[in-house]
């Protein structure tokens, strides 16, 4: 069911919600969180809602879409409520903000947040410079950005690093989970040897490749090199050198990965690039600070070959970012 409320107020929206619940039996209880999606007023709105609806099958939530429209227009709030079949397991409120109101999305959100439930903010496109200090970001316990969708992904990643605050997370990181799981499982087999060096390759503007390198650096404390592979494929390979040989996970085609280890047959694994809805569902699964992501971000400066910079000699850490002690590079 879709109900449009043009030129309205938040109390009218709340009223309509209760009304719909009583009449249609559209139950809005039992929601576990409020997901705030911040976009501009474009096709992105529908794409994000679709991803959120899919994710809501695992985490029933109230989805508030803040779509910022023309700032030059007069102040106006258009709302649309979707429940039932049009909203997955969630209820979706699309809030279109025009005029000066577009910069005050937080004021519209406050009355519509579910009581006593966590708030998650998600920017599917461009994110604020410092998400934790954004007015909407401040309302949220968890802030999901997507550096891969930014205009300049690597620059955006740099900004995530320098402004990291507990509760930040990024879909470029979420996309890595299957890679990380496979690499971790590969080390769990004999021979149990230390990794000497690491090389990670991926498209030049692919922030996941950088994060994978950062993660390996933060965990292994050995030299990690970032290499560039042709654009379009995301992460293409991760190679860990050990005394007995290489542990290699390569994915040339973006679909199927091959895991090579000395003394073992090659193993092929499905390693498809993950759609946003999977990533979002994973993100909503945990709402506490992700220390592992933080460490991976901080270790970015210690990765060799990122944008031609030398590891260790990269720009020093910036305020708000604690840098891990550099132990290696021997």
């Amino acid at each position: 069911m879709i109900v449009d409320l043009p030129s309205t107020t938040t109390s009218a929206v709340n009223h309509a919600l209760i009304d719909m619940r009583e009449r249609g039996g559209a139950v809005a209880l039992g929601r576990v969180l409020t997901l705030v999606i911040v976009t501009d007023d474009s096709a992105q709105v529908e794409q994000s809602i679709e991803a959120a609806n899919e994710a809501s099958k695992e985490h029933p939530c109230r989805v508030l879409v803040v779509a910022r429209g023309l700032k030059r227009a007069g102040t106006r709030l258009d709302a649309q409520i979707r429940v039932g079949g049009d909203a997955g397991a969630s209820e979706v409120l699309v809030l279109r903000l025009y005029g000066p109101l577009a910069d005050h999305g937080d004021s519209v959100l406050v009355p519509l947040l579910l009581p006593d439930c966590p708030v998650v903010a998600y920017w599917p496109g461009a994110a604020p410079g410092i998400p934790a200090q954004d007015p909407i970001g401040r309302l949220a316990q968890r802030r999901i950005t997507d550096t891969a969708a930014a205009n300049q992904p690597i620059k955006a990643l740099e900004s995530r690093r320098s402004s990291y605050t507990e509760g930040d997370t990024d879909l470029a990181w979420t996309r890595l989970t299957p890679w990380r799981a496979l690499l971790a499982a590969a080390l769990d087999l004999p021979p149990y040897e230390d990794v000497k060096t690491v090389t990670v390759s991926g498209a030049a503007d692919n922030p996941s490749t950088d994060l994978l390198a950062g993660w390996l650096r933060s965990r292994l404390h050995v030299p990690v090199r970032r290499r560039t592979s042709p654009p379009g494929g995301g992460v293409s390979s991760a190679i860990m050198e050990r005394r007995s040989g290489r542990v290699e996970l390569v994915r040339p085609d973006g679909k199927v990965g091959t895991l090579r280890q000395p003394g073992q047959p090659d193993r092929r694994v499905p390693l498809r690039r993950r759609p946003v809805r999977d990533c979002l569902a994973e993100e909503l699964r945990r709402l506490d600070p992700d220390e592992i992501y933080q460490a991976a971000l901080q270790a970015l400066t210690e990765v060799d070959g990122r944008n031609g910079r030398r590891g260790g000699s990269a720009k020093g850490s910036q305020p708000g970012a604690t840098r891990d002690e550099t132990r290696a590079d021997q």
Binding site: T174, T177, R180, A184, V195, R286, D290, E291, I292
Partner: peptide, 9 residues
């Protein structure tokens, strides 16, 4: 070294 109890993902 790649596993960590805090890495719940």
């Amino acid at each position: 070294p790649l596993l960590d109890g805090r890495d719940k993902r």
